[in-house]
Amino acid sequence: MSFLELKDLRIHFPTDDGLVKSVDGLSFSLERGRTLGIVGESGSGKSVTSLGILGLHKGGRARISGEIWLDGEELVGASQEHVRGLRGKKMAMIFQDPLSAMHPFYTVGEQIIEAYRIHNDVSKKVARKHAVDMLGRVGIPQPERRVDSYPHEFSGGMRQRAMIAMALSCDPELLIADEPTTALDVTVQAQILDLMRDLQRDFNAALIVITHDLGVVAELSDDILVMYGGKCVEYGTSEDIFERPEHPYTWGLLGSMPRLDREPTERLLPIKGSPPSLINVPSGCAFHPRCAFEERTAGRAKTEVPELLETEGGHLVRCHLTRERRRAIWENEIKPNLEAS
């Protein structure tokens, strides 16, 4: 069994308007030292997935089913107290906006020390030394001085470094980063991506990066999972996803992005419509109202939920089009348009 394994994870929230199926049957596995990128738009369920793994999806009302295996332990059925003991120690998380994710009234040091001392029975002095070490390790200059600063006294990039130091303080084996660079400037984003890559190598943790930015995913990930409407629509190595994508939604994402590494195209190739509401997920394939190739499925896309099937060597696709058809569309209709004529 892999280090982290999700089996048919479902997280549903009953609301006054109906049942919100944020995550609806998600399965994947991840080994130590590997990085998985989860890509999706707002409402795809990518953030709820990460909170679900940590047991942080909003308590009482959420309905969670399926299995989450972390290092041989099942978490969905485990007691809250047990999962709490693993949080911060065995699995840790980095959030999008480090300014709002750190408590404004406590110093950066206090917050790291707190994280360390929950799981390690050490004196404040030892914990403080550890906090200074961690701050130095994530590249914060003069850590013995900065440890006593408040989050608002840090710049955006330094804050995210501090956040990473806090998450890594107990040497976690699973690290989840939810849009870790979205709130940062471009040059600072590049620094943080470098740092995360280096630290992952040093810590040999399993890393999940959740983002809407295909560039960030390409920089970090070994494997990529594309989510749409609470389900995985495509999964593969990053080469699979960027060079041989087979799902129309993945094609749409690639066509939507202007790219610096290629000649500019005349027009972007967007996906029509908007991401679905998770209360009223479209019938059949959730993507079918926005799919440009829906009519080539002979109506199946409207009525039948497609299975997530292997197309080749671990590359999974959830689509009614046949493998041959998808490959032909990619080669003849999509790929040529992505590059400027």
């Binding site: 040059t187 984003q189 991506l193 560039g215 390409a218 960027f242 790219r259």
Partner: peptide, 15 residues
């Protein structure tokens, strides 16, 4: 130059 070079490129081969 630095700005351009900092933009992540969605191409895993090139990283």
């Amino acid at each position: 130059n630095a700005l351009l070079s900092a933009v992540p490129i969605p191409d895993p081969k090139r990283r």
